[in-house]
Design a protein around this nucleic acid. Structure first.
Length: 973
RNA sequence: GCCCGAGUGGCGGAAUGGCAGACGCGGAGGUCUCAAAAACCUUUGUCCUUCGGACGUGUGAGUUCGACUCUCACCUCGGGCACCA
């Protein structure tokens, strides 16, 4: 027996698959680019794919009807950023995707499984500076390194569709999309308060500011600066981005929740307050606020402006209040964004000396400035209702402002003496904090008695009143800001815009695309795009006068917002992708990636998809139908990172245990969405499992030779004991297995009654046939086990429970071990020689569904063993592809690929044992276990159980019997 | 504060409301061996020294014949949002 040598095997198959892949591409191109939809007509491509489709109904089972073309399945994994070699997170992400891909192919799907590189971005510049290289050299070297590692892992990618975002063939179309968005009014250049990272020396999008105001990449505290920048108007899609989350049933609830929080829609009303002049008389000038609680308007006792509000200076100019107000404004501006956002500071403010008029009751309320009011949310002005808002409450206490309760809680009678009171009687409350919950309106004039709360009848009534009196309207506010996409960095996709002194900002004409990024910019030497005249100096496309290019590049997230579309049509030279190609593959059936992109990338991609749909380039609204967010790989509870120096390198593990063991390990140790604690011992355990299966299958087919470990002639006792243990370990240990377990002398007698329980024509009952009978019983049991395991593995992979799928294969392997202990290969296979010639298709067909009555006779031994062996190999093929392929060729003597074989079939009925063990509970406690025929009805079960438990029931009155067929009987006494 | 998750042996983790702890790691004992490793076999939740029994899925209630699973409250941990009006 050739021993299992992962390095040798994996290297061999890598080369074979690589060559086969190259051949496939050549064949494709002779078919007119069918696979890749080169050119524009992808409809041809999909039809060609359909012609390719082999009849797969048998393998795909319920998933496809006979003679149908192969259904499409798009498995997408978040593409890597090429910062060095691949890490365990990549290995986990891509292993999950590869198992799904290989499994779906075996199930008869036409699978799209691409990979690429998100290769623009700041780390390349930093690395170039550090190493005195260029971003391009560093980036492309890393891509080659990663590509080699991914191939070494055995990932079955459509390599000919690879997308590298820093290739001009790709970013050309990013610029084209930019122009299309511009045409549609979704691009704006405007001045705004933006986030500036002093370390990265660039502006950042809101989504890229994390935690307490830090840069997402370098964690430096960001600064606020007023700058003119480029924006994508993602807020135009705020409503749809939020509403469509409910369509994404295949996404984790967590991610949907995070996006909903981020978009942050609040509904309420805008209320206009008339500004009073210096003498307190209302003017025509109005100040508008946004509120989610118009029902509390009668409780508004003061009015707040953000320190940055443009009105502030004018209100206090040349008044006694000017000095104090200026001091507070200056203090607010001095406080860092982080500090001010934290909310722990004591609330500070100052009176402006002016008033506004409350539209509902004519109250003159004082205008204050307060540092907790934010200029960039709502209108920068707030109606303060201290009885209903904790912040306003604290501010009122701080500056001794009145607090008027306008909502009383119904349930606990909070402030009951005000119930039903319409006119204002109290201007202070005995509470220690504001009450923001629902209740009933009080002290609110004609609205008193209406329900209060967010979106309540009272809120609606006040809103209606405001509309009727021209003092307000319903309004919705979002937390989401427009996406700032310009970056003051070199290594990115150039923004296709030109500045002309005469014509202003001019888009680069489509025909002039691509704007090529010079590859020789020496960032290490402080070089920049502005210093490259061949890039910087251009004639104005409109007037022809000298002009210059925009030197800002696009946020890398613009590149990753549409790469999954390019995969469907990767070589298109006239469009980013053809609509037909994209529509035929998307929405992606399964997207897999880290939770860290829950907001950033996933929100941007959703926005791009919707915008491109509105431009007419796509026919769908959401890019990813199903999302799996894989957990992190940790070491001692900590995230692996280079800076912490606690990285386990995949290469080193492949070197030692092979890619297949690493793949299986990472799937086995935890469900895919949970964090995984790295354990070398666990990896060794899986490696040993593969070694064990290797030996097992060789022994099963009788080619183990001298090295057989499972059966030695003449040691019947040891073998019997072993088999007994294994059979008992099997979950569905039935009567037959129990018979095997009893290894005492009258074996045949023990077997016969149990095994012959139903139609078993071939069951040998004669004592002389004891060995054969034992084998027979073991095969019957193993057949059931095989069907059960195939069913479980299939179901588990469908639901991404890879860990339990692998453990089910282990169970089948363990049961097989027990079977091997019963008899040597020659005893099992009778006169038949071990496999030397290629097995026929019939012999190696996917496990057929057989009539329940058909049992394997002793002479079928080799067939039985081969079927068992190929089943185990097929089940492992998606998980350990090199391992399975090698067995397919060397053990089963096949010349095609196991990865093109159909997935094994199973029959749930065959997984069912004739006789099952059920528990008898008395008052819910298990007291007894009995064997009953699997076919026993509930009534029979109830009777049987009471007979069997008669001893335990003596002297007790049976009140109720609950039989659960196949499981247990509960007797209540 | 609001909103999501998650709490099960020594460890990673299994369990459509129906025998808790599958599978693996680790531990213990054995077979083989001059010996060791590997491999193979047995065993391994806790407690009661017992054939046998009691207790066990973060805590406390509840629904149910029956709850790791469903309901309510609480505790702990993780995550998202947050002076968002």
């Amino acid at each position: 027996m050739q021993s299992y040598d992962p390095q040798k095997i994996e290297t061999h198959w890598q080369q074979v698959w690589e060559q086969a892949g190259a051949r496939a591409v050549q064949q494709d191109s002779t078919r007119g680019g069918a696979r890749d939809a080169r050119g524009n007509d992808a409809r041809d491509a999909t039809q060609a794919d359909a012609r390719d489709a082999a009849p797969s109904a048998q393998a795909a089972g319920q998933d496809s009807s006979p003679n149908s073309s192969k259904p499409h399945y798009y498995v997408l994994e978040m593409f890597p950023y090429p910062s060095g070699d691949v890490h365990m997170g990549h290995v986990r992400n891509y292993t999950i995707g590869d198992v799904i891909s290989r499994y779906k192919r075996m199930r008869g799907f036409d699978v799209l499984h691409p990979i690429g590189w998100d290769s623009f971005g700041l780390p390349a510049e930093n690395a170039a500076i550090k190493q005195g290289s260029t971003p391009a050299k560093w980036t492309y070297a890393n891509i080659e390194r990663q590509r080699a590692s991914l191939k070494r892992m055995g990932f079955s990618y459509d390599w000919d569709r690879s997308v590298i975002t820093s290739d001009v063939q790709y970013y050309h179309w990013g610029q084209w999309i930019f122009l299309k968005l511009w045409e549609r009014g979704l691009v704006e250049r405007r001045s705004s308060a933006v986030n500036w990272c002093p370390s990265c020396k660039t502006v950042l999008a809101n989504e890229q500011v994390i935690g307490e105001g830090q840069c997402w990449r370098c964690k430096t505290a960001v600064e606020r600066r007023e700058l003119e920048q480029w924006f994508f108007k993602i807020t135009d899609y705020a409503d749809e981005l939020l509403d469509d989350l409910s369509l994404l049933e295949g996404w984790p609830e967590r991610v949907r929740q995070m996006q909903a929080n981020w978009i942050g829609r609040s509904s309420g009303a805008e209320v206009s307050f008339r500004l009073c002049d210096a003498h307190g008389e209302p003017t025509q000038e109005r100040i508008t606020v946004f509120t989610t609680r118009p029902d509390t308007l009668f409780g508004c006792t003061f009015f707040l402006l953000a320190p940055e509000h443009p009105l502030v200076a004018r209100l206090v100019a040349k008044t006694p209040y000017e000095a104090e107000v200026s001091r507070v404004v200056a203090a607010a501006q001095a406080a860092s964004a982080v500090e001010r956002a934290r909310g722990e500071r004591e609330k500070t403010g100052a009176f402006t000396g002016r008033y506004v008029e409350n539209p509902v009751n004519g109250d003159k309320v004082p205008i204050w400035i307060a540092d907790y009011v934010l200029m960039d949310y709502g209108t920068g002005a707030v109606m303060a209702v201290p009885s209903g808002d904790q912040r306003d409450f604290e501010f009122a206490r701080q500056y001794s402002l009145p607090i008027v309760p306008v909502v009383v809680a119904e349930e606990d009678g909070l402030y009951p003496e005000l119930a039903g009171v319409a006119e204002r009687r109290r201007t202070d409350v005995p509470w220690s904090e504001a009450y923001a919950g629902p209740g009933v309106m009080v002290q609110s004039g004609t609205f008193t008695g209406l329900a209060a709360g967010k979106d309540s009848a009272g809120a609606q009534a006040v809103c209606d009143w405001l509309v009727a009196h021209g003092a307000g309207r319903p309004a919705v506010n979002f937390r989401l800001r427009d996406w700032l996409i310009s970056r003051q960095r070199y290594w990115g996709n150039p923004i296709p815009a030109i500045y002309c002194d005469e014509c202003g900002i001019v888009p680069v004409p489509e025909a002039d695309l691509p704007v090529v990024l010079p590859m020789d910019v020496d960032v290490a030497a402080g070089d920049s795009l502005a210093a490259h005249p061949e890039f910087y100096d251009v004639p104005c496309p409109v007037c022809g006068r000298p002009a210059h290019r925009e030197t800002d590049t696009m946020d890398t997230f613009t590149c990753s917002s549409w790469y999954y579309l390019r995969y469907t049509d990767a070589h298109n030279t006239s469009l980013p992708f053809s609509r037909a190609a994209a529509d035929s593959w998307l929405p992606a059936d399964q997207y897999i990636g880290g939770i860290e992109h829950a907001i950033l990338h996933l929100l941007y991609s959703r926005f791009f998809t919707k915008a491109l749909r509105d431009i007419g380039l796509l026919g769908f609204a959401e890019p990813f139908a199903n999302l799996l967010t894989q957990g992190m790989v940790k070491l001692n509870g900590e995230v692996m990172s280079k800076s912490k120096g606690n990285v386990v390198a995949p290469e080193a593990m492949i070197e030692r245990y092979g890619a297949d063991a690493l793949r299986a390990y990472i799937l086995f140790m935890a469900p895919p969405d949970k964090d995984l604690e790295w354990s070398q011992a666990g990896l060794e355990g899986i490696y040993r499992f593969l070694l064990r299966v290797w030996r097992l299958l060789h022994d099963l087919l009788g080619v183990a030779g001298e090295e057989t470990l499972y059966h030695e002639a003449g040691t019947g006792a040891a073998g019997g004991a072993a088999a007994g243990g294994a059979a008992a370990g099997g979950a569905a240990a039935g009567g037959a297995a129990q018979a095997v377990e009893e290894d005492a002398a009258p074996v045949a007698e023990a077997v016969a009654p149990a095994a012959a329980g139903d139609a078993a024509p071939a069951a040998p009952a004669a004592p002389a046939a004891s060995a054969a009978a034992k084998l027979q019983a073991a095969r019957d049991e193993l057949t059931r086990e095989r069907h059960r395991v195939v069913g479980k593995v299939t179901d588990d992979i469908e639901r991404f429970n890879f860990n339990t799928a692998i453990s089910a294969v282990m169970e089948l392997a363990n049961s097989t071990t027990g079977y091997l202990h019963l008899a040597s290969a020659s005893e099992r296979h009778g006169e038949l020689a071990p496999v030397t010639a290629p097995a026929t298709d019939a012999e190696l067909a996917p496990v057929a569904t057989e009539p329940a009555a058909v049992r394997h006779a002793a002479s079928d031994g080799r067939h039985f063993d081969e079927e068992l062996a190929t089943t185990i190999t097929r089940l492992l093929a998606p998980i350990a592809p090199h391992f399975a392929e090698e067995l397919w060729h060397t053990l089963f003597k096949r010349e095609d690929s196991i990865h093109e074989q159909p997935w094994p079939c199973f029959d749930a009925a065959l997984a069912q044992a004739d006789s099952v063990e059920i528990a008898i509970q008395i008052n819910g406690k298990v007291r007894l276990r009995i064997q009953v025929p699997a076919s026993a009805s509930a009534e029979e079960l109830a009777t049987l159980a009471q007979e069997q438990a008669a001893g335990l029931l003596a002297g007790k009155t049976v009140r109720k019997v609950i039989p659960v067929p196949g499981k247990l009987v509960n007797i209540v006494v």
